[in-house]
């Protein structure tokens, strides 16, 4: 239950600064704000769709700061050649969502 989050503090800082640069409203980014950023990765859309499925933990069609970090983490790992998992492994679930 007390598993460290795989998103390291220094990575979280980087993801947070990207998050803030996208103009979150009420601490939340809508899908249409996040989509172009993920498309920028040049990953296939079906992969990005799965990244979204895994990171929008409450399935409200928007990402908060922690959900966005999960999305970015998965995108960066995918760019390094790691497969995107079919379901979110516990260490990837933000501590705030457990």
């Amino acid at each position: 239950v007390d598993i460290p989050w795989v998103v390291k503090p220094e990575e979280k800082l980087k993801f947070d600064s990207i998050f803030d640069s996208l103009g979150p409203v009420g601490g939340i980014l809508t899908g249409d704000k996040v989509k172009p950023v993920l498309l920028n990765s040049k990953l296939p859309v079906d992969i990005l769709g799965r990244v979204w499925e895994l990171s929008d933990i409450d399935r409200d069609g928007m990402l908060d700061r922690d959900e966005f970090s999960v999305a970015m983490y998965l995108v960066y790992r995918a760019l390094e050649g790691e497969p995107v998992p079919m379901s979110l492994p516990p260490p990837l679930v933000p501590p705030s969502k457990r």
């Binding site: 996040v34 990005l48 979204w52 929008d56 069609g61």
Partner: peptide, 13 residues
């Protein structure tokens, strides 16, 4: 907000 027929909250679907 999402295309017609979409109850999906996923902008990539």
């Amino acid at each position: 907000q999402y295309p017609a027929g979409g109850s999906s909250t996923n902008p990539f679907l």
